[in-house]
Amino acid sequence: MIEKINITQWIIIAVSLVAAPFIGALISGLDRKITARMQGRKGPPVIQPFYDIIKLFSKQPIALHKLQILYAFLHLVFMMLVVVLLAMGQDLLMILFAHAFSTICLVLGGMSVRSPYSRIGSMRKIMQMLAYEPILILIIVAIYLQTDSFLASSVMDMSKPMLWSMPLLFLSFLCAVAIKLNKSPFDVSTSHHAHQELIKGITVEYAGPYLGIIEIAHLYETAILFFIIMMFWQTNYYIGFGLETIAFVAILILDNTFSRLTTTWMLKYMWSIPLFLSIANIIWLWSK
């Protein structure tokens, strides 16, 4: 497979690897800015995430032990691998597994230290995974049912926008994105706002550059998620971009109007409404 990659693909891979964190940073910068405006504040500059990460790398690398840091590296590298695999148009399920592995590494990093807060954050992160993972797999299944292929590149072969055939899955996916981006009401494991209550949850014991690594991985993840949202209208990138904007604003409104709810609620909610919506959509595609 590797030898089949031509020079253009190598360039695409390289560009997406470099561009993804910048896109992610811009998205989260915009996120902070718009959130501030929604709350009647001025808010930080849009490039604030860059400052944050550069600052983190100039800090003292304190840690609890060495193993913890290995997991941070694995988290980042596998998040980058997801980008590479997407750029290569590889098997979607395998991409999903690489993504899950990346998240599990974060969880394991949080659990490898003897810290109660980190542990609680990790447990909640696994609950989050449990909540959204089925929906992501069902989306891939829906893609297969239409294209007879698991390859990410096959999405481009569909003549109609994916949103036409899987609107319910799109709604469910937005919930999954809200979980992944740690937005209220799903921001149970770590949150941008809940510094005091969660003590930053899962990343509590990471500091300095190691936290920076995790933040970069989060930027990659943000870019990946928004790329997937855009792919729901893969026939026209401008409309896809519009879709992305709508989704972005919707998630921000959700974030700013809801309070944080419990993990139990999250699991019950995700395994009831979005899961059933997804299954309904799958059955609809299947019977066609």
Binding site: R32, A36, R41, K42, G43, P44, P45, Q48, Y51, D52, I62, H195, Q196, E197, L198, I199, K200, T203, V204, E205, Y206, A207, L211
Partner: peptide
């Protein structure tokens, strides 16, 4: 926050 100041709950960050 317009200065980038965040109020966080954890000394390690």
């Amino acid at each position: 926050e317009r200065f980038g100041i965040l109020h966080i709950g954890n000394p390690k960050h």
